[in-house]
Structure formats: C-alpha cells, structure tokens
Amino acid sequence: MRRPIAFEVFRYAAIALAVAITLVPIAWMTSMAFKPTAEWQATGANLTWWPKSPTLDNFRFIFGQSSTALIVALERTAAKPILSSLLSAGFGTLIAMGAGTAAAYGLSRFKAGGNLPLALLQLRLFPPMAVMIPVMVMWTFLKLNDTWFGLALIYGIVTLPFAFWLMKTFFDDFPREIEEAALVEGCSRFRVFLKVTLPMMAAPLASSALFVFILNWSDYLIALLLTNREWATIPVYMASLSSSMTGQLYGAKAALGLIAAVPPVIAGIAIQRHLVRGLTFGALKQ
C-alpha cells in the first residue's frame, strides 16, 4: 500500500526521535569514557560532545593503573567484578533456562502441576526487598554469601518465572503434531524433547535466554546484599567508584559502563537472526 509522503516523513521523523532519545545517553557515556579527568569534570560551557584529547586513562584506571590527575588509587580493579558478573549472570541464566524450560515443557504438555504456573507468577509480585533479607540470612548459613555461585543460584531462582512463562508460551504454540509424528515412530518422549522440540525451538530459546541474561546482568540490589566484597558484580563495583576527594568518578564509571554493555550486545548480535523470529514465534502459523 502506498502511503502519502507526509506520512512517511512523519514516520521517519518519529523513528529518528525515538532512536535519538535512546542513543543520546549511550553516546554521552561513550564520549565520557574516553575523556581525560579534566574534561569529564568540566561543566557548563566547557562541556563537549567529542573528547578534545581522547585517552584510555579511564580504562587503565579501573584496571589498576593509578591516576595522577585524581590522586587516588583503587583498592580493587574491575577485573574480578567483571568475572563475577559473567559467572553469576551466566550460570544464573543457565539455571533459570534449564529449570524453566523443563518445567514449561512438562506443564505445557501434560497439564500437570495445577496452579504452579500462577504460583510462579506470584513470585514476581513480591518486591525483591521483602525476601532478600531472609535470603541473606539463609545464604549466610549455607555459606553462599559473597560467592559467585551463591549469586548465580539466587539469580536462577529469581528469573525462573520469566524463563518459565516465556518458554511455556512458546511450547503451547508449538504444533503437537510434530512431536506426535516422532512419537508414533517409536521415539521416547525425552528423545523427542531433546532431538525434535528443542532444536526446532532454537529461536525462542535464544531470545528467552538473552532476556533472562540481561535481567541478571543488570541486577544491582541482590548483588549488593549478597556480595559485599570478594564477588561484587559490575553494578556494585561501579557504585563504589568514588572517593571522598573527587566525588563520583564519572570517567571510570563510563568506561566500566561501556565494558558492561559489551556482553549483552555481543549475545544479541550472535542470535540476531533468531531474535525477531523468537519474539514473534507464536504469531507465525506453522
């Protein structure tokens, strides 16, 4: 259908505006990450979009090189928090997706479990704060406090409902006949699940996993409560990037923010061809 030119102009203008609003903060962070101290501390008329003397000082700083301009040295570098974030968010996603997918399949196919799906949803209605203090106490007893696997476990539990509901919707939409075709050939239910259903669900699996990963990756509250020192994650560590003399170290924070944006973006690009199909899975007729 041919639309009027004015409509097209308006459409693209609206898209451009939306993209600009989304990208401006990211562009600003990127710019700041490459600015030397004097520039990111600048205010008013001295502010520039483009770094006048671009430098990698901010990156060097968070990885342990002391900065003369700031006269501060970091007690800890960003290396361990990055590792902590990768491990806890990664394994947390594995736990949520593994348990969530298996549960979703069972509940979608066998109608077992009664109200479990709704109960799982209700889990999300709790403010996390309400349960985090008891969890903290439990984790202390279980010696899971301040460990990446303790954090991964709670991430897995907290994002399980998301993984479950996403996958359940996808399984509900998956044509039963395809599984039945394999079953009548004598294939076991488990093998059908592994060899037929899961491979054909690659797209929804990938997009759900990315969604869950981003949730885990950007968590601050849980990590703050459960990892006070050793295994502080990127967001927790980022909050600590300040000093009494200089206040917030925005340059360093920007550099770390830029690094933190990398894994989800890489994952997103890697599964890009699955993403759209995954997010529209139910909408397509077989």
């Binding site: 044509p175 006949e177 395809i178 039945e180 491979p199 077989q286």
Partner: peptide
C-alpha cells in the same frame, strides 16, 4: 501422516 505434515523442519 498429519494434515499439516508435521515435518521436522530443522
């Protein structure tokens, strides 16, 4: 044989 064929498309 199913009406919608139920082919393993992967």
């Amino acid at each position: 044989v199913f009406q919608n064929y139920a082919i393993f498309t992967h």
